[in-house]
Design a protein around this nucleic acid. Structure first.
Lengths: 160, 160
DNA sequence: TGCTGATCATCAGTATACTGATTAACTACC
DNA sequence: GGTAGTTAATCAGTATACTGATGATCAGCA
């Protein structure tokens, strides 16, 4: 490993930065101001209405501390509501608003475009192989992260 | 694209987080406290003594603003020196100290281990293919980022 | 019931990353 | 030689991400 540019960690950082830049550009031209992380959180709350913050963090592999700020901004934008749970007063229950639902629908095409753009250097076969390897690598190293992916077993949306 | 977990942007973010976590763990057990970004900057200053901050940023695809803080911390740790250039008084010239050189040598094995660990889910052939695709994708989308990779043409270290 | 350990959310602190603006200094061109 | 455009660095502001700590609450168990 003679060079920084031959290190997977460095290349992954660069691709992630590219992904964020492309995402921002696409979403902005669709007339919205939403970050990739905020988008992921919104999508997950839609598929899991009433989810608490800790479970949400596990489902999209965030750090628990980070999620608080993300949710703050989504609530401030009027895309989410946050209320104290009726069954567990420690937990905050999250739900999408109609505004959030509408925004998500309008943003979806921009997000699709962004995913294609960030891999525009690869052909169709290469994209599929890249995705397979990405999934395999992240799955295997999941627990190395402080914010590992944690699926909810008692969750119908989780059934393959 | 039904799910967040099928989006390249999301998976790349996760792998990057894993990479950072593994890097920290390895470097820490080697007795140092250095981030991936700080490591990359150190390595580049070693191969390009007397480089200015803006050129350094281009060589490792950082944002120019970000580099200031990174260099600050490296100077504070005693790994780099920063001085006003003699030929261009706007520029700050960076050089490694002996302390920095020694640290880099001691850290190198930990960084190698971290690179292997983050891709421990892939076999040898898959790692090679993953690296090839990563390089191809980042090269093609380089200019989408605000902090694109900019190689220095008049640079002997750049000759292939 | 009361205790212990675990969990949810938050806070303080640090380190990337980015946008947009400003200041100082350099370069090119008239 | 002066001016316009460019460039290096920095600053203010915002948004991830992480570590480690704390307070409130819950669940299990003697």
């Amino acid at each position: 490993m003679k060079d920084i540019n031959d290190m997977p960690g460095h290349l992954v950082r660069r691709l992630q930065q590219i992904a964020v830049a492309v995402f921002h550009a696409q979403v902005e031209s669709a007339g919205f101001d939403l970050t990739p992380v905020q988008y992921a959180a919104l999508v997950r709350v839609r598929t899991h209405p009433g989810i608490d913050q800790a479970t949400l963090a596990g489902l999209i592999a965030y750090d628990r501390t980070t999620i608080a700020g993300v949710v703050d901004r989504l609530v401030q934008k009027g895309f989410l509501t946050r209320e104290v749970s009726g069954t567990d007063r420690r937990a905050r229950v999250l739900r999408m608003t109609e505004t959030g639902e509408a925004a998500l629908n309008r943003i979806a095409p921009a997000v699709e475009t962004a995913q294609k753009l960030m891999l525009s250097g690869l052909d169709e076969v290469e994209v599929a192989e890249f995705m397979r390897l990405l999934r395999k690598a992240t799955d295997a190293a999941n627990d190395f992260s402080r914010a590992p992916l944690r699926e909810v077993s008692s969750d119908p949306a989780n059934a393959k």
